[in-house]
Computed example of a mutant assay.
Amino acid sequence: MNNDWALSKLDEFLALSEMVWRTQSGSSFPEVAGGVTAVTQSAQVVEKILDRVTPAWRKSLVNDDYEPWQPTRLAVMRAQSEIRNSAEVAQMLGEDAPAMRADAMHRWAWDAARSLWQSGHFGEAVRAATVKLNAEMQNKVGRRDVSETALFQQAFSADAPSQGSARLRPVGDDGGKTALSVRRGIVSLAEGLFAAVRNPASHDVSEGILSEQIALEQLALVSLLARWVEGCTVVRE
């Protein structure tokens, strides 16, 4: 993200949305400095910045009938502080370790999770990503009669393909010991994903208690499997 551009857009919104007193025909009344149209247009961009910098910002909004833009203004101020101080805070409070970006994950994972993630529904976001992975896997091999773990087991089987049951082979798969090991590993990860991640999320076990960090790690598993699946060659009878 271009921090300088983002900060300039946030500053612009704060200037436009500041409440000022206008006088007309002897009467004074409050209104936003930039006018409702300009503030609304600015907010369209600002909200996308907030979604990126502080994804759960909407959950902290409190309606203010007198100053309707005030809740967003407060969210903008928090985002400004995050942008300006995130590097220093990370350095002072913990290791200067690489950060994992959700929007850099495979598109099957992040595109499916994005809207739920940005509203703070992390468990549901991960579940949506697993549903997308399963659907794309079915599309890849042209099947609808099997899904999830069984689909991975059959698609990565060492058996030759048969009518209506195509196989997937990862990049560089030569049928040797290493190739067989890779296939087994992919299937094992898929089994873990659907059993330990997707199933609990589908039954609302994790919703409300799943932290953003844990959800991010689970989403990374979906992304990794998605990259393997997309890169595979389809082998048909």
Rank of each mutant, 00 (worst) to 15 (best):
S42M: 11
G26I: 10
A56L: 14
A43I: 03
M1Q: 13
L50N: 02
A79M: 05
Q91E: 06
A160L: 15
S27I: 14
G176Y: 11
G120W: 15
S181A: 12
S8Q: 09
A109S: 05
V171A: 15
M137K: 00
D4Q: 10
E67F: 10
A99G: 08
V187D: 03
A220Y: 09
A160Y: 13
K132T: 01
P98L: 08
A150C: 05
A155N: 03
A166S: 07
A112V: 06
R52W: 09
A125Q: 02
T130H: 03
M1K: 07
G35K: 09
Y66M: 06
N63L: 13
G231W: 01
R107K: 11
N3W: 05
E88D: 06
R236N: 04
S17Q: 13
V197L: 02
A195D: 03
S202T: 01
D64H: 07
T40L: 13
A99W: 10
I214Q: 11
Q218S: 09
M1H: 12
A112P: 10
E230D: 05
L10G: 06
N139E: 02
P55A: 06
S206V: 10
V53N: 08
E88Y: 14
S211W: 12
M1P: 07
V234F: 01
S165D: 08
T23H: 09
L210Y: 02
M105T: 06
N2R: 13
Q24L: 13
Q41G: 07
R227D: 12
Q138P: 01
P71I: 09
G231Y: 04
V62M: 10
S223Y: 00
D65T: 04
Q44S: 11
D145A: 01
E82W: 00
H203N: 05
N3L: 07
S119V: 15
V32I: 07
L10T: 00
L210Q: 05
L133A: 02
L219M: 15
Q91M: 06
E237F: 04
L210K: 03
E31A: 15
D204F: 03
E82V: 15
G176P: 04
I209A: 07
G120H: 14
L14S: 04
K132H: 02
P30R: 03
R143K: 04
R144E: 02
A102K: 14
L189D: 00
Q153T: 05
Q41H: 08
E18Y: 03
D204N: 07
F152V: 03
W117E: 09
A150N: 10
M100L: 15
A75C: 14
T149C: 05
R169A: 11
T149A: 07
D65S: 08
S8D: 15
Q154W: 01
N85A: 04
V187K: 06
L16E: 05
A220H: 11
N2E: 13
A196V: 07
M77E: 14
N134R: 04
D159E: 15
A79L: 09
A155Q: 01
L216R: 12
E230H: 02
Q163M: 13
L7I: 09
Q213A: 14
D159G: 15
M100S: 06
S188L: 14
D145K: 02
V89N: 06
S157F: 02
K9A: 10
R101I: 15
E136A: 00
